[in-house]
């Protein structure tokens, strides 16, 4: 097999292990699981003064902690994936190894994806079982769709941006500050972007269309019209996110190359 592909595979494997041994990912997954369980438990106490379609309510309930965590918290938590090489003092050694830049970046990304996907799968199963036994049967198709569309899309787009954007940061702290600025500050403009299906909403790092789409399914029953986001907006947000990701990926690769030539 091609040397670069073998390197990519093994790097993915070790990055995956390091993500799980680093505890941060475990904390994120536990946070999602616990928030979901708490929501379901509140919901199951049947104290809400309204009648809801339980099918939509289930995904709406679970999507809120999932999407917000993946959209905002995940990029911050994993932002040290590349800067930690510098901080641990491994970067200098890595720079002397015959590893192409695309393998390095690809290994970091795939390792993170693999780690998060495993965690999300576990949370999906645990939350699904908990819902089933506390409230009742789930609409599995809708439930899995929500995890795939909201979970996987946010993981691939925002998770990858969380790895790639801080590529030039020399320390974990700087990486975290940068990502907090990028992924938390947009909340300051929440009033203008959360209810507007526009280009600004599509390229917004919080991905409001994805975050609100499934909540809105439940919300519409509660308040009539919480949001204007449709499945079309979700699709456009994913496309815009993938374009952003491609651009950031090319820039990260270019930065590594430039740094190598400048050294």
């Amino acid at each position: 097999m091609n040397t670069s592909l073998v390197q990519l595979g093994k790097m993915t494997y070790y990055e995956f292990r390091m993500h799980w041994r680093g505890r941060a990912l475990l904390v994120v997954m536990l946070a999602i699981a616990v928030m979901n369980i708490f929501s379901i438990w509140i919901f199951s106490s049947n104290t809400l003064p309204i009648e809801l379609d339980m099918t939509y309510a289930a995904v709406g309930l679970i999507s809120a902690p999932l999407t917000l965590t993946l959209a905002v918290l995940l990029p911050i938590i994993i932002s040290d994936t590349i800067p930690k090489d510098q901080q641990y003092g491994v970067r200098e050694l890595l720079d002397t190894l015959p590893v192409p830049h695309w393998v390095y970046l690809g290994g970091k990304l795939l390792g993170m994806w693999a780690g998060v996907l495993l965690g999300l799968f576990a949370v999906m199963v645990v939350n699904g079982i908990f819902y089933h036994f506390t409230i009742g049967a789930l609409d599995l198709r809708l439930y899995i769709e929500m995890w795939l569309v909201a979970g996987a899309a946010l993981l691939v787009i925002n998770g990858s941006l969380g790895v790639l954007i801080p590529v030039g940061q020399p320390s974990r702290r700087r990486a975290v500050i940068l990502m907090v600025a990028l992924f938390v500050l947009p909340f300051a403009f929440a009033g203008q972007i959360f209810d507007t299906a526009s280009l600004l909403a599509y390229i917004n790092p919080i991905r409001p269309a994805i975050v609100l789409y499934y909540i809105a399914n439940m919300g519409e029953q509660v308040s009539g019209n919480l949001t204007a986001f449709t499945s079309n907006d979700v699709l456009l947000t994913i496309i815009a996110g993938l374009i952003e990701l491609t651009l950031v990926g090319v820039l990260a690769w270019g930065w590594l190359r430039w740094k190598e030539n400048r050294a």
Binding site: Q7, R17, G22, Q87, Y88, V90, E92, L94, P98, V99
Partner: peptide, 23 residues
Amino acid sequence: LGLYPNLTAREFLDYIAILKGVT
């Protein structure tokens, strides 16, 4: 030289070996 604190010595050497092209 820094090392990845969460890898074992065997894993770290295996990781570096593959990055050196020992496939």
